[in-house]
């Protein structure tokens, strides 16, 4: 039923990259995330699945403090990156987001050239000392996002002129250009056609070599194809978290089984 070969291939215990304990998120008076405990491992793809409004995207935004940009959002609990509390007042969210990159649901290239889109992060963080070094970073990032061959002759053209799939890969190249340690992806394929989706999925599998990847997805097939660990969210709770193969073939919780077999959601 599901293509789980990829997931079963190498499930080894890696270092824990990010973890959350008793995480709560409130939007005003409404609680969106309740008591979530999770450990995200390094060099591995973790998928968040669950019905719409279950809080998976909200929790993803907890991990790089993007909820700070929403005035009514409030986060409680301990969230750590490499053992450090990222909600500690001494932590600069701007620095944190350079270490925990994010790719969004809809491609959102800046109104700049392809080159400047990729160079945006390295420029603001001063990662390159000269033009040659920047060229190298841009090329490496675009190659990683499997976009280099398509755009290498038109790097100065606007990024908004690319097709949807190319724009999303440009956004991935932009995110990896800052050399993050964790890459958060919020339904990165929901606006893409099947061909672009499979390109991005291949890419996610390659990115696993260097980063810890967390992906929110509505497609259970996609979760099964790309992830090694899967977390099922429902109504703000983390219902079940385990190896992808186990979640899809032998879920422990009734609600998980109902969801993956299509009875709720």
């Amino acid at each position: 039923m599901y293509d789980t070969r990829n997931a079963e291939r190498d499930v080894t215990q890696n270092e824990i990259k990010m973890s959350a304990r008793k995480c709560q998120v409130f939007y005003g008076d409404k609680q969106a995330i309740i008591d979530v405990d999770i450990d995200v491992e390094d060099k591995m793809v973790t998928a968040f699945i669950g019905p719409s409004g279950c809080g998976k995207s909200t929790f993803l935004r907890v991990l790089n403090r993007m909820n700070d940009t929403i005035p009514i959002a409030r986060v409680e609990g301990a969230i750590t990156l490499d053992g450090e509390d990222i909600y500690d007042p001494r932590v600069d969210p701007v620095q944190l987001r350079a270490r925990v990159g994010m790719v969004f649901q809809k491609p959102n290239p800046f109104p700049k050239s392809i080159y400047d889109n990729v160079a945006y992060g390295p420029r603001i963080h001063g990662l390159a000392t000269g033009k040659a070094e920047m060229d190298a970073i841009v090329e490496k990032s675009l190659r990683r996002a499997a976009l280099w061959d398509e755009v290498k002759d038109r790097l100065q053209e606007p990024g908004t002129g690319l097709s949807g799939g190319q724009q999303q890969r440009l956004c991935i190249a932009r995110a990896v250009a800052t050399e993050p340690e964790v890459l958060l992806m919020d339904e990165p394929c929901s606006a893409l056609d099947p061909i672009a989706t499979s390109q991005v999925e291949e890419l996610i599998d390659e990115l696993r070599e260097s980063y810890s990847v967390v992906i929110v997805t509505h497609s259970m097939q996609q979760a099964a194809r790309v992830s090694q660990k899967t977390a099922f969210f429902h109504l703000g709770y983390l219902v079940e978290y385990g190896e992808t193969g186990q979640i899809f073939t032998n879920p422990r919780d009734e609600r998980t089984e109902s969801y993956i077999s299509g009875r709720i959601g």
């Binding site: 790089n64 993007m66 940009t69 701007v94 620095q95 944190l96 987001r97 350079a98 270490r99 990159g101 994010m102 969004f104 809809k106 959102n108 290239p109 800046f110 109104p111 945006y120 992060g121 603001i124 963080h125 956004c171 932009r174 995110a175 800052t178």
Partner: peptide, 20 residues
């Protein structure tokens, strides 16, 4: 989405305003 994209790359609000 453009603001989010820039902030998520670790840009400060004023960098986001100026450049994006």
């Amino acid at each position: 989405s453009l603001r989010d994209g820039s902030l998520a790359l670790g840009a400060t609000p004023s960098e986001t305003v100026r450049q994006v």
